[in-house]
């Protein structure tokens, strides 16, 4: 433990410049040399416009790091949480079933949902209103984690574009529903055509449905582990193409 006196002296010393620094002129000249080196390199050297600006190699030692947005855009890392999209099914309806899981978990409380009822769909609940306030969103991705239906994703590789009004940042379902459709073998709409009991269902132990009088073709046996398939992963290009942006 240093004595108080010692500490005080050191503190005083640190606020002092050394004799060399107090000459100013050599230090100014050295500083100017640095400035000039950068100036000349960047003046005469050609800029490397690669968007990977951390690894740019300009000619003649050019070190300009500016990213000329929007012409040059930094590549988003894999797994970047872009603006949300509501994942569609093959028939264009949202996968979302208006379960409010995302709205419940959302720490910013920026998701608002109202549910409606389909009469003739394998899943009878769907969102009539699904709104995300992108201004409030803290881009935490918890909604994606919470969703039991893989219906909301942040794989668009786009950040929220600017708007002229606050209202413009409140994305309705029409703006959110985009991108390539996703289905899993266990999804109800692949297994039944509406909410009524399918008459041709097949169960290994039971044969065909009891109420059916029609003979039906036995189906392919289901591969193992299909209730827990790996989710399909899309590249940025595929998302762009499918959402037409």
């Amino acid at each position: 433990m240093a004595s108080t006196k010692e500490i005080k002296r050191t503190a005083e010393e640190t606020s002092q410049l050394s004799w060399y620094q107090r000459l100013f002129v050599p230090e100014v000249i050295r500083g100017l040399a640095v400035t000039t080196r950068h100036f000349l390199r960047n003046l005469f050297g050609g800029r490397d416009p690669s968007p990977d600006f951390a690894y740019r190699k300009g000619s003649l030692g050019n070190q300009v790091a500016t990213l000329q947005y929007p012409e040059e855009r930094a590549p988003y890392p894999v797994g970047y949480r872009g603006t949300h999209r509501l994942v569609p099914r093959e028939d264009g309806k949202p996968r979302c079933v208006a379960c409010y899981m995302c709205a419940t978990v959302c720490p910013a409380q920026c998701i608002y949902i109202e549910a409606g009822e389909y009469e003739d769909d394998p899943i009878e609940k769907y969102p009539t209103v699904f709104v995300i306030d992108q201004l409030r969103c803290v881009v935490c991705g918890l909604c994606v984690e919470a969703c039991p239906k893989d219906a909301i994703r942040m794989d668009t590789y786009q950040h929220t574009p600017p708007e002229y009004t606050r209202e413009g940042f409140i994305y309705p379902i029409e703006r959110l529903l985009k991108g390539p459709p996703v289905s899993y073998p266990s999804d109800p709409w692949l297994r039944r055509k509406d909410s009524a009991q399918p008459q041709d269902q097949h169960f290994p132990l039971h044969g065909v449905a009891a109420h059916s009088t029609e003979p039906v073709e036995p189906r392919e046996p289901y591969p193992a582990g299909r209730n827990h398939p790996a989710p399909p992963v899309f590249t940025e290009e595929e998302v762009r193409k499918a959402s037409g942006s």
């Binding site: 009469e119 394998p122 009878e124 266990s186 297994r191 039944r192 909410s195 009524a196 009991q197 399918p198 269902q201 097949h202 169960f203 290994p204 039971h206 289901y222 193992a224 582990g225 299909r226 209730n227």
Partner: peptide, 14 residues
Amino acid sequence: PSRLDGPKWMKNKR
């Protein structure tokens, strides 16, 4: 976790 690894029996949902 469920030990059933196959389709579930479907009935009227609505």
